[in-house]
Design a protein around this nucleic acid. Structure first.
Lengths: 347, 347
DNA sequence: GGCGTGCGTGGAAGCGCTCTCACCACAATG
DNA sequence: CATTGTGGTGAGAGCGCTTCCACGCACGCC
């Protein structure tokens, strides 16, 4: 909040104001304003002269003045809690950003990237959001939750989460893919292909997506009447997948199928299997999760469950904009997107 | 610009204003304001009571009102012209974002992501920047230039380019790595190792970085008294590198060294060499460029020239903030960062 | 004792915009 | 003819904040 160097231009004769537009157009400021904002109740003549005044003066409305009175900023925040450095390179994040910007570009809304750096800066983020610096927030709750959902739900600010938040899921809107169903489908692929000893490499248990997927695996295993004891946790990285696969295969050398909660971890698992001389999918079939690019490049290419990230981001953004437009702290809405299976070579 | 639903809260009794703070603190609005903004010319007593009023009321200054009078927004834009969908997944972009946010997080400045979608929306971007919606702009001129530099230099808005812009390079501040020197160094590595027939896979000729690197290669070749005729252009992708390597080796089967303008293209080249049965570095030595992650994962690992992307972004951001603080449309400043060689196995 | 000189303070003037409201002309209705 | 709209308009009141300026007041100095 520290103002560093308060040099201010003395009323900057440079930029034209609405007053000048009005004067040039020969109308009142009120009429000029109306003409500029959609032209309700403005005669054709007035509209035309305002338009031309705007053009000759190169007038651009001052956003601060406007939002001071409208109480809108025409911008939304994309909040990324705890962005450890991986986030940016993450295809999930990239896809999200793509989806968001696609929707925003349809309207004149800007995107403010709010990165709550690890540490106590969640407070700063909340402060920023508190006083309506933005019209709404899209929280990419990719990582553990911090109670951010609770805070947000208290904020009376339109808000949508990407991915089910850990808590307050009932008070907050979110868009998620049906992780449970997805992993169920993945597991069923192995069951149907004849696997009888199926293990899973789950994600970190502090992430809802990981937990939901694990639940899906358990459901499918139960439905097939198979034992669900072969579980190992990884951290969604390739190395983590490698370690988990090592441990899993050491404990259960008889596995003929592995359901992995992310493609990156599956890639690690494939490496381990290759080094053990187990052929995929013949000795051990493997199914991944994500299909964000990695899956096509492994050997063999991964059969996986696709998360339509961009679509999710688009839906989330639209949901947010609806809230913003209606200005309703509307009843928590959620969109659950069905996952789809992508069959390749690993199962 | 369309206002969709002008529902406005009637003076929102919810959020406290400076007036209320002043009343609660028992001082005037002026004093309250001073106390809140760094406390110059405020007695300890007044400061204390304002502080406590702020705390009890949960007061947060209204940014619109503030920036209406200060003419500052405490936010800067990161402008990405023509973000074809690759940009987001690009480690270059990711690193840049990381560097920028690191600097911004030291102060209370926010980042607005301005993505000029392909098409005529450059106009919109310029309009957005024109009326001081942000205090400054960092243009990641990763791709071809669009005359954006000219436009920007006319805008009287603090502005720094990441990477030398095609034109107006003399009127605009920018931060760049010394691409020419970098590729010269890369080439010299091959020369010193005894290569005598060295080709290059250059980047697309509509990018300054690509052209500069090509120039560096030519300089080094000339200095070594070698012919600089073995040139092929790629598009900085792996596939492009593959194609270029194919073409290059077909035309010049006697090459014993290849200088490649990006690691990704070098990865493609390595594949081609492997499929031709040429061993690297013994038959053909290869040097890449970037060192943003890919280089370590190729087989063999790439000797390459490191671009310190994050550092570049940091420097650029600091440069921008200096301009913003001084509010000087200061003499075009540039920072050229020396590249460093990273020796691995491919040369 | 008079006089700068400095600090702390509050009054008040905006920053540039939107929007209510009162007003006018004119048309349509009883 | 009096009444009720109805579309276009401008005056003016803010939105919440910063900052200029003038005003005390206490101090140290001749």
């Amino acid at each position: 909040m520290t103002r560093v160097n308060g040099t201010r231009k003395p009323a900057a004769g440079g930029t034209p104001t609405l007053d000048e537009v009005a004067r040039v157009a020969g109308v009142s400021r009120a009429t000029a304003s109306r003409a500029i904002n959609g032209g309700q109740r403005v005669s054709a003549a007035a509209q035309a002269s305002v338009d031309s005044a705007v053009r000759t003066l190169g007038y651009v409305p001052n956003p601060a003045a406007r939002s001071l009175v409208t109480r809108r900023t025409d911008s939304i925040a994309v909040v990324v809690p705890e962005p450890d450095d991986r986030v940016f390179s993450d295809p999930f994040f990239a896809g999200t950003l793509r989806g968001v910007t696609r929707v925003l570009s349809e309207r004149d809304i800007q995107l403010v990237l709010l990165l709550a750096r690890p540490g106590a800066s969640t407070a700063r983020t909340l402060r920023y959001l508190t006083n309506r610096h933005v019209d709404g927030a899209l929280v990419v709750s990719h990582h553990r939750d911090d109670g951010l959902a609770e805070h947000m739900s208290r904020l009376d600010l339109p808000c949508v989460f990407g991915g089910r938040p850990w808590s307050a899921g009932d008070r907050v809107a979110y868009v998620d893919v049906d992780n449970t169903a997805g992993e169920r489908i993945a597991t069923e692929v192995l069951v149907e292909r004849g696997c009888r000893r199926i293990g899973t490499i789950a994600g970190p248990s502090d992430m809802t997506a990981a937990e939901d997927r694990l639940a899906g695996w358990r459901q499918a295993m139960a439905a097939a009447g198979l034992a669900d004891d072969a579980v190992e946790h990884g951290d969604f990285t390739e190395l983590g997948g490698q370690r988990a696969a090592d441990a899993l295969l050491a404990r259960h050398p008889d596995l003929d199928g592995i359901v992995v909660a992310s493609d990156l971890m599956a890639a690690g698992a494939l490496k381990v299997l290759a080094s053990l001389g187990r052929s995929v999918p013949d000795d051990v079939a493997v199914v991944g999760y994500d299909d964000l690019g990695v899956a096509e490049r492994t050997t063999p290419a991964l059969t996986t469950v696709r998360q339509p990230v961009e679509e999710m981001a688009e839906r989330a953004t639209r949901l947010l904009l609806e809230q913003v437009d209606g200005h309703s702290p509307s009843h928590p809405m959620r969109v659950i997107i069905p996952p789809t299976l992508v069959t390749r070579d690993s199962a």
